[in-house]
């Protein structure tokens, strides 16, 4: 077993890597919040803070944004301090990222297909694709579930609740 394999199988090291990954994610979250705060504060300032002595449209975004920048800066400092103490990462403990990608892709295709194919067909295809290719069920189970679930939802929403779901181009 080489050192990389050993590193991959060492639970303590995996935990430290996850720890580091967690701090990285936390720091990224704090940084994003700081950017959001900056944008809100600047936009608020441009909208105007006061007019004739009364609050203008930009006052609240400016206040909330400024407070967010301050809080995010403190949070980022804490995250970075934690990150510097964690071990450098070598082997990744990725989880099932491809599955998440599969869900993202299915959602995007589903959204695009809804106005074209209509609810019934688009839902059937999206469910069948998701179950077969992302969740790795057999064809029979995927198709059976997709058809059954689409029909059940169509019955519930269109027949019982009279929701005008997209009918598609036909």
């Amino acid at each position: 077993m080489n050192s990389a394999d050993e590193a991959r199988s060492d639970p303590a090291l995996i935990e430290q890597q996850q720890h580091r990954g967690r701090f990285l994610a936390r720091a990224a979250g704090s940084a994003t919040m700081a950017v959001l705060g900056c944008y809100a504060a600047l936009s608020g300032y441009r909208l105007g803070l006061f007019q004739l002595g009364a609050p203008d449209a930009g006052l609240f975004p400016f206040m909330f944004g400024t407070a967010l920048v301050v809080a995010a800066a403190v949070s980022l400092a804490i995250d970075l301090r934690g990150l510097s103490r964690a071990l450098p990462s070598c082997a990744g403990a990725g989880g099932e990222r491809s599955k998440v990608g599969g869900y993202f892709a299915t959602l995007a295709v589903y959204l695009a297909a809804l106005p074209v194919l209509g609810f019934l067909v688009a839902t059937g295809i999206a469910l069948a694709g998701l179950l077969r290719f992302v969740e790795r069920y057999g064809w029979r189970a995927s198709l059976g579930t997709a058809v059954g679930a689409s029909l059940a939802m169509h019955y519930l929403f269109v027949r019982l609740l009279a929701v005008p779901l997209p009918k598609g181009w036909w």
Binding site: L127, L130, M153, L161
Partner: peptide, 17 residues
Amino acid sequence: GLLSALIMAFCVVGAFS
């Protein structure tokens, strides 16, 4: 997995309606 797929479809219909 099956549950997630069904919930996803339900979320889409719910949001649309």
